[in-house]
Design a binder for these strands. Structure first.
Length: 789
DNA sequence: AAAGCGGTACTTTTT
DNA sequence: GTACCGCTTT
């Protein structure tokens, strides 16, 4: 007996030792390979910590190691809250933590973007805030159209009250936690609006807010505002949410706005175990309400805080780091730090001076090809950055011409396409039938004979009843607002369809429901019916969207490790609405392609070879950013971000003239080029604008005997029909027969597949050689038998 | 209902 | 210069 106990004790002791060893090994593995400062930052887990992480200093590594370290110390993963700005950052961190501590623990860490994490909290308390539990999210586009609708409702001139401007004003108010009533009470704000001749912005804000609430919708900013309201007014919620976490970490702290700042502060007030990571030199989102003061003042907020500086750059060559330093030194009020890199100095920064944006593109592409031959680089090693999205065009053209694969990470992405928005609007409406914007978008798509007049009348009814379009459809006095009974029937049939689909939101999986919606709405058939080339592309996009619901569901199921949850369409919507444009391209085949994106999008990314294009005054720095010192400094930080993306080499390019707004514009080289210490430049920036943009610049690219690029010829896009021929004489519509070869004055040659309809409305289905099938109304189509004149 | 037109704004960045 | 809007035309 005694022996058994003894053996057990020994065993237990061994077990304990074994455990200790595992834990120690874990900790050792976690700390292994970190430099001193990184290690200190990882190990300092209690109390407020500020980690100032220079570009390429292994910030993500420190953050992930820190989480792993906490877990190794025995902290329950679900008590760690880690907030990031992008899904991508959150995803990467999760992956890396999983590698260190395993999936099981990694998945339990509460890690995500501010918005997605807060939405989860808000759902629990939605009703106390006056929202339905299944509230949906408006992206900026939705938000602008809602503002526009309000402007109309208030009979204001949308030329004066430009919806986009008004929306951004409202957004900015929300970022600063200025509610409608606070705005009304704010004499300064009202004065400012009066001065800009828009005194009624407050009324628009007011009404906009009412409408969103009525529709059960939050815009991006509301997520933060409502989170604040919740934590301010609901003590129980504050206590309960705050009690869930003992360690809070915030990535990219320099980009937080007031609303986020306060939330973080409140959630960590109990324990002060708040670790923020950021780089004041990379604060580039002031226009979105980010306050660089948040990071600058961290030490004042928490006098007991520890600060760690990650100054060693592992990404870039010393030349690049020093060049970047020399740029940022022109800014004032920075957190002092000295970024450095070790190793061979590396190449100096290259300069390309081009005549036009086309020449700029030609030279960049040449430089890429040369680099690939010389250094054995792959396409994916290159990034071409620009200040504004519109600059991608000329670059794309050249890349295409030389058959270089590329991917544009831009705002005009998949989810901005009309057909995808249509399908998405159906999804949103089914999840939340009160969503008026979505309602209006799809109520007559595909055509259900619910025209503009009917929708207007329904809107009037909704307004009078103080309710949403969906509810108003069932009012018994619709005729009073000018709706014919036929229209009433149709609207109600539409609502009944939406409602029946809505019944399945919680019970059906996201994909099944999505497919049903696609089907029952008729949208699938609608897009399928269009057999023109563009139409087929549109249909493919709709299909892709529906398929992406399927992959979303699978992904989630994987993550849930066999838990019996169904992943529903509202989960999908929430997920999708919070994607950034860098996230969006994740699914696309990003293998070995040159990356094109704005400098903003490039933040957080790295590439061996980086081209920073359009280095011209009025473009970078942007025209509107040169008015104030503050704005100029943000632009400079943006330039700093651009340079520090590069590992091996940076090439800066600028053009003498550039087409903007249909005008040729000439700008001198960017002042930022002169911010770079000339030691790090391959050659000086030419001061003399005489001859700038002249031959000397252009000739550089053609030294190796290639000669100037061929004259610009329009690229054959299959969907772009030729210009109409003014001398085209069409034949009478009755002259055609099935199987006949014809030519159309715009669509070119083709064959008639089918003729339908009666004489004045004769229709022909024609398969064009270039453009695919189209349905033409012969009454209007200008075509003739092939070969005739 | 689709195509064509003329007008306008766009081009700073986006969770 | 182009994309989008709203209005008109067919």
């Amino acid at each position: 007996m005694v022996i058994i106990i003894y053996v057990n004790a020994v065993r237990r002791y061994h077990f304990f030792l074994y455990f200790r060893i595992i834990m120690e090994n874990n900790v050792r593995a976690i700390l292994d390979g970190l430099n001193d400062e990184q290690r200190k930052a990882v190990q300092c887990v209690d109390g407020p910590v500020l980690i100032v992480a220079g570009a390429g200093s292994g910030k993500t590594r420190v953050l992930t190691s820190r989480v792993a370290y906490l877990l190794a110390e025995g902290v329950d993963p679900s008590r760690i809250l880690a907030l990031t700005f992008t899904k991508k950052a959150a995803g990467e961190m999760k992956e890396r933590i999983a590698l260190m501590v395993g999936q099981y623990k990694a998945r339990r860490v509460v890690m995500g973007t501010f918005h997605s994490v807060f939405i989860r909290f808000l759902r629990d308390y939605a009703e106390s805030l006056g929202y339905p539990k299944e509230f949906t999210i408006y992206d900026q586009g939705d938000s602008v159209s809602a503002v526009k609708a309000v402007i109309k409702e208030l009979n204001l001139d949308d030329a004066v009250y430009k919806p986009r401007d008004v929306q951004s004003r409202i957004s900015s108010a929300k970022n600063h936690l200025v509610t409608v009533s606070a705005y009304r009470a704010d004499r300064n704000a009202l004065m400012a609006d009066t001065h800009s001749k828009k005194p009624r912005i407050i009324d628009i804000y007011d009404r906009y807010q009412q409408r969103l609430k009525q529709s059960g919708v939050m815009d991006f900013d509301d997520i933060l505002v409502n989170m604040n309201i919740l934590l301010r007014d609901n003590k129980e919620a504050l206590a309960s949410i705050a009690a869930r976490f003992s360690y809070i970490m915030v990535d990219e702290y320099q980009d937080t706005n007031l609303a986020q700042y306060i939330i973080i502060k409140k959630l960590s007030s109990g324990h002060h175990n708040i670790c923020v990571v950021g780089d004041d030199s990379q604060s580039i989102y002031a226009f979105r309400g980010a306050q660089i003061q948040n990071i600058l003042n961290f030490r004042k907020d928490y006098p007991e805080s520890k600060i760690f500086r990650l100054e060693r750059n592992y990404r870039s060559t010393p030349t690049i780091v020093d060049a970047a330093n020399s740029v940022i030194e022109h800014n004032s009020g920075r957190i002092p730090k000295k970024c450095f890199a070790e190793g061979a100095p590396g190449e100096k920064l290259h300069l390309i001076q081009a005549f036009t944006e086309q020449d700029e593109a030609v030279e960049i592409v040449s430089a890429i090809q040369k680099r690939m031959r010389g250094d054995g680089a792959a396409y994916q090693d290159f990034a071409i950055l620009y200040r504004t999205n519109s600059q991608s065009r000329a670059l794309e053209e050249q890349l295409r011409r030389r058959n270089i694969p590329y991917i544009v990470y831009s705002g005009n992405s998949f989810f901005e396409r009309a057909e995808v928005k249509d399908m998405m609007a159906y999804f949103k409406l089914v999840v939340n039938p009160m969503d008026d914007e979505s309602f209006k978008r799809v109520v007559n798509k595909p055509a259900r004979a619910i025209g503009d007049t009917s929708v207007k009348a329904l809107e009037a009814a909704a307004l009078a009843h103080g309710t949403t379009l969906f509810r108003a459809a069932f009012a018994d006095d619709l005729e009073a607002y000018g709706l014919r009974s036929a229209a009433v029937q149709k609207v109600r049939a539409f609502c009944a369809m939406i409602d029946s689909l809505n019944q399945s939101v919680k019970t059906l999986g996201a994909f099944d429901l999505a497919r049903q919606i696609a089907d029952k709405s008729g949208l699938y058939a609608f897009y399928q019916a269009d057999t023109s080339i563009e139409g087929m592309a549109r249909f493919a996009n709709v299909e892709e969207l529906v398929n992406s619901v399927a992959s979303f569901e699978e992904e989630r199921r994987d993550e849930a490790e066999g838990a019996e949850d169904t992943f529903t369409l509202d989960d999908f919507l929430e997920n999708v609405s919070l994607l950034s444009n860098v996230d969006l391209s994740e699914d696309e085949d990003t293998n070995n392609k040159v990356a094109l994106m704005t400098v903003h999008s490039a933040k957080g990314l790295e590439f061996p070879y980086v081209f920073v294009t359009g280095m011209e005054e009025n473009l970078f720095p942007s025209q509107s950013m040169m008015l104030s010192q503050k704005d100029l400094e943000e632009e400079r930080r943006l330039f700093y971000v651009a340079i520090t993306r590069a590992g091996k080499a940076v090439t800066l390019s600028y053009a003498g003239t550039r087409m903007r707004n249909g005008r040729h514009e000439s700008n001198s080289p960017s002042r930022f080029l002169r911010d770079i210490d000339s030691r790090y430049l391959e050659r000086p920036v030419e001061d003399d604008p005489v001859g700038f943009g002249g031959f000397s610049g252009v000739s550089r690219g053609y030294v190796n005997g290639r000669g100037p690029s061929p004259a610009k010829k329009p690229i054959q896009v299959p969907s772009a029909p030729a210009a109409p021929d003014p001398n085209f004489i069409p034949s009478p519509m009755t002259d055609f027969y099935v199987g006949e070869r014809i030519e159309h004055n715009r669509f070119g040659a083709g064959e008639i597949l089918e003729i339908t309809g009666k004489v004045p409305e004769l229709k022909a289905r024609v398969r064009f050689d270039e453009l695919g099938e189209k349905l033409l109304l012969l009454k209007y189509a200008k075509m003739r038998p092939e070969g005739s004149k």
